[in-house]
Structures are given as C-alpha cells and as structure tokens.
Simulated scan of single mutants.
Amino acid sequence: MDSGIKEPFSIKKLIGTIILLIISILFLLPFVWMLSASFKVESDVFSYPIQWIPQRWNAIANYKEIWLGANPFYKYYANSIIVSVATTAISCVVSALAAYGFTKIDFKGRNGMFLLILATYMVPGQAILVPQFILYRNIGLFDSLLGLIIINCFSVLGTFMLRQFFMSLSTEYIESGKIDGASHARIFWQIALPLVRPSVATYAILRFIWTWNDYQNPLIFIRSDKWYTIQLAMQKFASLNGEFYSLIMAAAVSAILPLLIIFIIGQKNVIEGIALGGVKG
C-alpha cells in the first residue's frame, strides 16, 4: 500500500500548465519555421499553407552554400569561438576574484569601493563608445580580436552576480583555511571556487551567450572582413543574399546552434547555481 502523500488535484495548476504549454509552443514556432525553411528549396519557403515538414528537401545545398560558399561561415565561426571562449574564461576569473575580495577579505573602504564599481553599471555602454574607440585606436587594439576580448572580459554585472553567490558561502570554510595557514589565493582556488562552481558555470553560460550575440562592439571596433564575428557575418550575408530566404534561415540556424548546445549541456549548472544563490550561509 502506497503510504506517500499525494498532492490534491488542482484545476488552477492544470490551467496554469496548459497556459504555459501554449506560450511555449508560440515561442518555439518561429524557430521551428526557421529550421524548416532552411531545409527547403527557395520557392517553398513562403508557400501557403505552411509546410512544416518540407516536401522538397534542399538542406545539403543550402548548408553547403553557407559553410563552403563565397563567404564561408567557418572562418567567422572561428573568430566568434575565439572571442567568446577567451572572454568567458577571463571574465569568470576576474569577476570571481573580485567577488571573493568584496565578500571574504575585510579591508578599509570595501563597501564604498563596491558601490562605486556598481555605480559604473548605470552608465550606458553607448556613452563611452567614443572614448573607447579613440583609446583602442591609439594603443593598437582597434580591428583585432584581442580588442574584442579585452573590452568584454571585465564585467560589473558578473562581479555583482558572483558576489551574491560568495555571500552565501559560509565563512567557516575560509576560517578553517586560514587556521591551516593557507593564503587567500590558495583559499580562493582550492576552497571557495570549487564550492561555488555551479554559480560560476551559470555566469559562464550567460557570458558566452552575451559575447556570442554581441553585435555592437564588433560593428564599432572591427573593420577587416577576416576578423568578422558571426553576427557581422550574418548581416553581411543577409545583405548579399536578401532574396534567398532559405539561405538566410540556414545561416540563422548555424548562428544559434552553439548557443543551444551550450545551454543544453549547462542547464543543470544553471539550476544548481540559482538554487545555491537562494541559500544563505
């Protein structure tokens, strides 16, 4: 006999679930249509009624044109991967170090310094584009992948997010490390950072997505075609193939595929990170 407690049936929960299911389907429909259109011949893209499953498949030709055509996507993919991975790695380390310092190291003016850093987040990025442009041009970082990496790897939001997670970490771990004679550097790398790994992974996923989708900075700081990221390549490809929507949809699917893979792989860490942030030590 089952002794478990069963939740009573609720009409309200059922209606809520149905509403969320309908909203989810509505959000997914454009992506399904985009994927379907990328497999079709051009004349079938806007056929009515909509052919969700293509009757005439042209996927190989469409994606071959995207990846191996006159403007092959693989070189732009390489640029975006380099910038996104490097930016994510550096930003996670820098933000985690800053968050640890603002929560676990007691120094004079700590709270005031954090508020000052946090206040810079209120300044819109567009307001400092001109000074950044002049600075990058003068120091030789203009029109380079290194410039894109540096401009994105210092994040006030990342420091704020990870600070909240480090605040949930019990100080007993830090004190035990000090008793054993460990320095703050050793405590950070061997004790604190592993304990908040899901939180750092959560920020890493978000940072990767933000960097991959960044259009403004590459548009301002990149001029050479060889350094184009995937977002600039999409704009260029759309302008050159504006009448071929099947190719544009194939390019769009190719552009979002890494984001889907990253999120599917890291969704467990995202959930763990959110749960960790809700527990105060």
Rank of each mutant, 00 (worst) to 15 (best):
I134K: 10
F114D: 04
I271C: 09
S246D: 10
Y228E: 09
I66K: 03
Q132M: 12
I179F: 02
E175R: 07
L219P: 00
A275I: 13
S239F: 06
W212V: 01
T88C: 07
S3Y: 15
L169T: 04
F133A: 07
V94T: 11
G4Y: 12
S239M: 09
H184D: 13
W212E: 01
N58R: 08
C153D: 00
I264M: 14
N241D: 07
W57I: 11
W33N: 07
F237I: 08
A185E: 12
P194R: 05
V94L: 14
S47V: 14
N138G: 09
E7G: 14
I15G: 07
A252L: 13
W57V: 10
G181C: 01
T202D: 03
Y77T: 09
Y63T: 01
R56Y: 12
V41L: 13
I222G: 02
I149C: 00
L240E: 14
A37H: 02
T88K: 06
Q231C: 05
S183H: 03
P49M: 06
A61R: 15
K6I: 11
E172Y: 14
L28I: 08
L141C: 04
V200E: 05
L14Q: 15
N217I: 08
S224T: 10
L240I: 11
T87Q: 07
A204D: 06
S170H: 09
P30G: 03
G69A: 03
V130F: 08
S183Y: 02
N217A: 13
G266W: 01
K64S: 14
S91C: 12
V83T: 06
V156S: 09
K12M: 14
N71V: 14
A250H: 01
L276H: 07
I15Q: 09
S91H: 04
S155D: 03
Y121F: 12
A255M: 10
I19C: 06
S254F: 04
K64D: 10
P131A: 02
G125T: 00
Y74S: 13
N111F: 11
L146Q: 12
E65D: 13
D214P: 01
V123A: 07
